[in-house]
Amino acid sequence: MRAASVLAVNAGSSTLKFGLYDGEGVAMWQGQFSGLEPGGTPAAPFEAGPPVGAEPLPWALAALRLRLQAERHSPLAVVHRVVHGGARADAVLPVSAALLAELETRTPLAPLHQPHNLEGVRAFALAFPALPQLVCFDTAFHATLPALEQWLPLPQRLHAQGIRRYGFHGLSYQHALQCLRRCGAAVEGRALLAHLGGGASVCATEAGASVACSMGFSALDGLMMGTRCGSLDPGVLLHLMRQGWDLERLEALLHRESGLRGVSGLSGDWRTLRASRDAQAAFALALFTHRLRRELGAQLALLGGLDLLAFTGGIGEHDALLREQAAQALACTGLRLDPHANAAAQGERVQPIHAEGSPVQAWVVPADEGRVAALAAWDWLRQGEDARHA
């Protein structure tokens, strides 16, 4: 008989990532369906029949359900990553119609993620009707942000409507801190954590709690990203509106046509740009690095010193040159990387990359938001069991 497990899922616009985790948060099985976007070529991480006569997402769920049955896996719950939970600080919540309706109102603030996250919740509820459906929020980790970090310099009535800074990538930052704590790293001090991938942000923590994040009201803010612009003078939007740009055109510009893709004119994929000899591709990488160094410096000033720097996410785990250039911006803290350790780190495991004697630690941590969500789901299940036996 297979060990008890929970199924953690992350539904995106073209992918469905999943993982089975035991009660200790150990991944028993992980995989990803791809090509689920309209017109895409669906692909499964295992042998599965073609999606004849079926939409890609229901096909993927049907294939997953059959594979779980064949492997005799019987998860106790399904837990979903949801990007924007608003001001909620809950680690995990059971899905309800009221909760889904509330989360729908957050869709304009994370249009690349939220609608697909919620579509995944509904699809799994249909495919696995006997299992509890739970949600975890990327924003919940940042509930500890101080008021000065939350507030935007707008009229108070707008703050009362929820227009404030929330922060994102919280599940990734939680996972990084959990891994680093197990390794005895200096996470209880002043830390800068960089989640660098198609979406990118920097988070400052003290004693393991978020005190600043480069992302704010929406997942557009902060660092330059794969296709998102990051921080932008709002005067640019006013200027374009005066030229006749409507809401849909502006949304497309900010979310899908900017960042690395827009600046390079080639691609939003970091690996493609690294491999290119095109001068504009090189400039896009340089601009990304410049804005990362700038944000690290800003959050360093808020912390007033530094004990640890950590990189996670696809770019953060695999690009040694970017890590070196980012660390150079923090040389004033005494941070020194070990060039051999930095070159060797590729995200396969939690790995220190600081030089011997460096007063500031530096680490590379493989991202695994699913593990954080799974552990939260296990806590929820155990609390329910305790209540039933009370």
Rank of each mutant, 00 (worst) to 15 (best):
V95I: 05
H116Q: 09
A345F: 08
L337K: 11
F141C: 08
H195D: 06
G259Q: 07
V6Q: 02
C229Q: 07
G268H: 05
I353R: 06
L303N: 10
V9E: 02
N117W: 04
L335C: 00
G384C: 04
L126M: 10
L266W: 07
Q383T: 12
A185H: 05
G384R: 12
L177P: 00
A70M: 12
G316K: 01
L57E: 02
E257N: 14
G12D: 07
F33T: 02
P234D: 06
F128K: 11
A44K: 07
A87F: 00
R2H: 14
H169T: 06
G199Q: 05
T272S: 13
A91L: 14
P352T: 01
A125V: 05
G334M: 11
W270V: 09
A27M: 13
I315M: 05
P51L: 05
L309K: 06
A212Q: 11
D319N: 10
Q114N: 15
A185T: 04
A11C: 15
H113Q: 13
P56Q: 03
A212P: 00
P155C: 10
G265Y: 11
A367F: 04
F283L: 15
G297L: 11
L223E: 04
G305V: 10
P339L: 06
G304Q: 13
Q280H: 12
D90F: 03
R271G: 10
E348N: 12
G265L: 12
Q299N: 02
V82E: 02
F124G: 00
W270T: 02
F288C: 14
T144W: 10
E55M: 13
L16E: 03
P366F: 08
R294H: 15
H113F: 05
L303G: 08
D221Q: 14
F137C: 00
G170V: 07
P94L: 00
L287G: 04
G262C: 12
E102V: 00
G235D: 07
V83D: 01
V187N: 01
L300D: 09
F168P: 02
D269G: 09
F124N: 01
W245H: 14
L232F: 04
A331E: 15
E24H: 14
A54H: 07
N10D: 10
D221A: 14
E356G: 09
V360T: 03
F217T: 01
P75W: 01
G259A: 05
D246I: 07
A27L: 09
A326V: 09
Q361A: 03
V52R: 14
P58T: 03
A70Q: 15
H116L: 03
A8G: 06
P51R: 05
H340T: 12
L192Q: 06
G120D: 09
L16W: 02
Q361D: 00
H239G: 08
R164S: 06
F124H: 13
P58E: 08
R274E: 11
G167D: 04
G226V: 07
L158F: 15
L337W: 07
P75E: 03
A110K: 03
L66F: 01
S358P: 03
A377I: 08
R293A: 15
R181G: 11
A110H: 02
A97S: 14
A282P: 05
D138Y: 07
A344L: 13
P111G: 06
L99M: 09
Q243L: 15
Y166S: 00
A143M: 02
G49A: 15
F128P: 10
R249D: 04
L57Q: 03
P108Y: 03
A345I: 09
L134T: 01
A8K: 03
Q280D: 13
S74L: 12
G313P: 12
A4P: 13
L16N: 02
